[in-house]
Design a protein around this nucleic acid. Structure first.
Lengths: 118, 118
DNA sequence: TTGACATATTCCCATATCGGTATATGATGT
DNA sequence: ACATCATATACCGATATGGGAATATGTCAA
């Protein structure tokens, strides 16, 4: 077996940096293919192919307007990524948590001292 | 050019579902390779290979203990993913935001009515 | 030293990729 | 009908993949 298809899920679709750039560009608002081509300085067929992948995982929506096709983000497709990675968020702020623990203990000691005084 | 290496960055490393499972398992605490093999029901060489990829992007750390190797998560490697995807978080709760706006307006009207009564 | 155990690496195959070039499809205006 | 513009698709090449099987490396214990 080879690597999973890029269209397998949002995780795979978004692993490609240019596809993230496309989403970032679309996050600012609807864009036509040629606007994306111009702004990202990529070949037109390449942009169309990346957009197809994003479409297949539901990360973008298309609207037809004459000969143009207007793409927009559908961020709901990214939620699983956010849900998964958020579970790890606490871990890289571990030092802050450790600090919080220390502060909590200091507060408790302070309070206990106050109780002693009372 | 082919697809970017899985070791190119955390986005690529984490696109593979089994590697996410490995991280999820390690999130509960340090595990040896054979513990991972047993719990995830994967072939040992496969687990070792996936761990290598995760090591190369810095998502796991290894500690040697006799003939065992104990792996643990280093979640800092996942922060770029979180940072990127978080920018889209607002967008999938857009409906809720819209709903909140409506509710806020209703509340304001209610309050204004009360003011009129006063 | 020898053997058992834990892990990593190598070799192999089938597969899907990304990017380029060329071409097809489809809409617009004359 | 025709030429033009906007986009999508097809074809090609080079490349790296994930999984399996076999093997290498390294550690412990007797």
């Amino acid at each position: 077996m080879a690597r999973a298809a890029t269209t397998a899920d949002a995780f795979n679709a978004v692993a490609e940096p240019r596809r993230r750039l496309i989403l970032d560009e679309l996050a600012a608002g609807e864009r036509s293919v040629s606007e994306l081509v111009e702004r990202l300085e990529l070949a037109q067929p390449l942009v169309s192919k990346h957009l197809r992948v994003l479409r297949e995982v539901g990360a973008v929506a298309v609207r037809e307007d004459g000969r143009q096709r207007l793409y927009s983000v559908d961020a709901r497709a990214l939620k699983p990524i956010h849900d998964w990675v958020s579970r790890y968020e606490r871990m890289w702020s571990e030092r802050f948590e450790a600090l919080e623990t220390v502060l909590d203990e200091l507060k408790r000691e302070e309070r206990d001292d106050a109780d002693d005084d009372a």
